[in-house]
Design a protein around this nucleic acid. Structure first.
Lengths: 219, 219
DNA sequence: GCAATAGTGTCTATTAGACAATATGGG
DNA sequence: CCCATATTGTCTAATAGACACTATTGC
């Protein structure tokens, strides 16, 4: 059958921040092919229950990873006979952002071993062409941030401006200037100041913000 | 069969310039579904002969449209049960640029009626979701030009700087400032000056340029 | 000379980048 | 007070946008 019809799958690069570091979710493959290798979470399209490939990605995340993500975006579609030993295959890659509240749900997964890997310097043996896919997803994410879209879906519900800056720095892999950063986001309507709410500590308190209800990372 | 496996196709938004206007190729559908409607050129994936979906796009252009294009880039993959009456389908959309020398080959096609339509204001009845696909391709093309990548694959082998500017203006749909435009492309290594070659006419002659061998529109 | 377009220069407003200065909490 | 971080300000270089000016051809 796969000589006439390709295998159609979806893979998801699910990013989050852990201790200020950008991480991508890998799962250990329990089934053939590539048993024991690490891979991006993914699954086969089910035309009978999925409305679209994006729906496939949401279903995979909900059923296999047990998370609901606020942000999913298509990155690229890879294809060919060589990338999967089962034969001619297609995979549409999605990039997803996981808010920190959802991380424990993933960590508690009992069904398979998981790993939050550094997307730039991952040492694990990766299945299929997933090393390339991670690069595609990371490039796409960095381009968004370079175009001044704030990755607020990686933030908790309340956060400080310095924390947003640190998230951008983790994604871009370089330091940003504080004054320049704050100037650029000053008029960003995605950010809503929370009057009277402050992050305290052994220093001057910082104003807390939240995402505006209309914030979309893909805008 | 299509209840288990989706129909996998490729569509191509093939752009060219005609009399200074940006145009996209439409072909009149000869087969069901949507006989008689206008559509982007496209075709079904053949896993036995195509190395990738990009190869499918090149094959479709070579065999159905009889052209070889220097530039093909993936734009997006659309999917779902509603977009094609034959059932659950996937189409990966590519954007292609056709140099003016190749336009006559397309114009001379005897196999089906064709049309070079205005991609913004196309009045023809379009098959499937192809009106949406044209918008995706146009947005992708405009983004490239906004990021200062010159659409040199739309130019003849020799051209003037004013002609490149007019190509960019046709794509973006607005006038550009001559001084600003020339300042921005001054150090662009994609352009090679042709010493002693000039475009003449009833005014001051203009320096002719050509693409550098290493020019890639996707850079 | 005149029309038309090529090619260059100039001025201003905006912005990025680097860095300094000030503010305000906890201890 | 001191420390650490928040927040704001300042200076400079680079750039975009608008527009003017000069150059060179055919007629």
């Amino acid at each position: 059958m796969l000589d006439l019809f390709p295998l159609v799958t979806t893979d998801i690069a699910l990013f989050t921040l852990m201790e200020g570091q950008l991480r991508v979710l890998l799962v250990e493959r329990a089934n053939t092919p590539c048993v024991g290798a690490w891979a991006l979470p993914g699954g086969v399209l089910r035309p009978d229950e999925d409305d679209s490939l994006e729906a496939t990605a949401f279903r995979v995340l909900a059923t296999k990873i047990m998370v609901q993500v606020p942000y999913l975006e298509q990155v690229i579609t890879v294809s060919g006979a060589a990338r999967d030993p089962r034969g001619w295959s297609i995979s549409t890659l999605f990039c997803a952002l996981l808010p920190p509240e959802e991380v424990p749900a993933v960590a508690g997964l009992k069904t398979s071993r998981i790993c939050w890997a550094n997307p730039i310097d991952h040492q694990l043996p990766l299945a299929f062409d997933h090393a390339v896919l991670i690069n595609y997803a990371l490039t796409s994410l960095r381009d968004k941030v370079r175009r001044k879209t704030l990755p607020l879906h990686l933030m908790p519900t309340t956060f400080t401006l310095t924390e947003v800056q640190q998230a951008c720095e983790a994604i871009l892999g370089r330091k940003l200037d504080k004054g320049t950063f704050r100037r650029q986001i000053r008029d960003n309507t995605s950010l809503v100041e929370l009057p009277g709410e402050w992050r305290t500590g052994p220093q001057r308190p910082a104003q807390l913000y939240t995402r505006s209800g209309s914030f979309r990372f893909d805008a």
